[in-house]
Design a protein around this nucleic acid. Sequence first.
RNA 1: GGGGGAAUGUCCCGAGCGGCAAAGGGGGCGGACUGUAAAUCCGCUGGCUAUGCCUUCGUAGGUUCGAGUCCUACUUCCCCCA
Length: 417
Amino acid sequence: MSSPSSDFLRTLAERGYIHQASDLEAIDAAALVGRLTTYVGYDCTAPSLHIGHLLSIMMLHWLQETGAGRPIVLMGGGTTRVGDPSGRDETRRILTVEQIEDNKSSIRQVFSRFIRFGEAGHDAAMADNAEWLTKLNYIDMLREIGRHFSVNRMLSMDSVRLRLDRDQELSFIEFNYMVLQAYDFVELSRRYGCLMQMGGSDQWGNIVTGIDLGRRLGTPQLFALTCPLMTTASGAKMGKSASGAVWLNADLFAPYDYWQFWRNTEDADVGRFLRMFTTLPLAEVSRLEALGGAEINEAKKVLATAATALLHGPEAAAGASETARKTFEQGVTADTLPTVEVPWGEIEAGLPIAPAIVRAGLAASNGEVVRAIAGGAISVNDARVTDRSRVVGPVDIVDGVVKLSFGRKKHVLLRAV
RNA sequence: GGGGGAAUGUCCCGAGCGGCAAAGGGGGCGGACUGUAAAUCCGCUGGCUAUGCCUUCGUAGGUUCGAGUCCUACUUCCCCCA
């Protein structure tokens, strides 16, 4: 299509969120009149979402921000009990209902950072498909929904074919996932007048199946919009860091670490990430992106602070930024670094370096510390440790704390109490 | 139902004549170089109360001074025939 006339689609296009869409012109028209109620579903497989989910959350943010329609966050309390085979080449482990409920309540929190919930106008709504899926009766469901599904068609879906082609197990329960997700779309259309479903590119098949089911069950025409799968410029999947996934919940991944994650973006990704993961004006993004050589570091700091502010709030972002400035640019010990408390008695008696590092959460075992020392990775108060029998004692305490470092980027303060 | 093959370091892939804490990749981490980047080079990538001890090769037994390796049963997966 020619350039979109709605703010929503134009913003999404300019910022690089659009991978595939079912009918851009119709979507554009609905957005223009503010009727584009849209949902994104999130499964409750972990206690927190991670940055892989951020793109779709940002799309909901822009949907609301541009007045295109009402965002609906759908918690997969029901579908998680089944397990989505998309993008998986192994059967998902089946979670207990309790785990799912715990995860659900833990995941919910982050959304209010990005979208405004409430009852008015374009205020967002949160739904949970457990509400209707758990009430389905098998026979009724087969008669009313199942008859609209062609197994021939289902077998041709990417998520299924991948497993079949590789002769990998696909259990019947997983095979049903797309049916449930399709039904969700219809249900949300009926309950909220939802017109569109967004998600990652791997969701395309499931979304389109929902559109199809809607047509057969007489909903208004439904639409699909997907965002690209996030990778770094060097081709690696995004979302992994030193300590595993980059979680959105602060208790699993500290704001400081989150800031650092963005700060360490590859040069080639800076512009793209600024567009997708911050709300900075595009003119500003272009300017930052044009910075060359070492200057691009300024752009990375802006990216880190803006992205962190979106998720954890401006204060946490400023704090992380300041801690980083002190730690890296001044080499000063910032008291806002992650801190672990240790009884004074242990320090007084002398705490061997290996257990101290483990206690600080910087390594998983004494053996790892011993190897790290051999590799020159461990420092106490910025002085490299070369002797594995080094002991952290009272002489190391400066202003009540000892600064322990694993590599140049991971620092923890041990505070004597 | 019959026949054949496979399961290896809990991140993944993968080699492994009866002496194995187990080759080689990838990934990850660390060091050097830089700009807290990329690329490149180097090191590390079971645990411990550590010149030794313990736990690891699908599960359970067995043979052996000694088993990832041989035998038996079981589990799961793949292929061929019906």
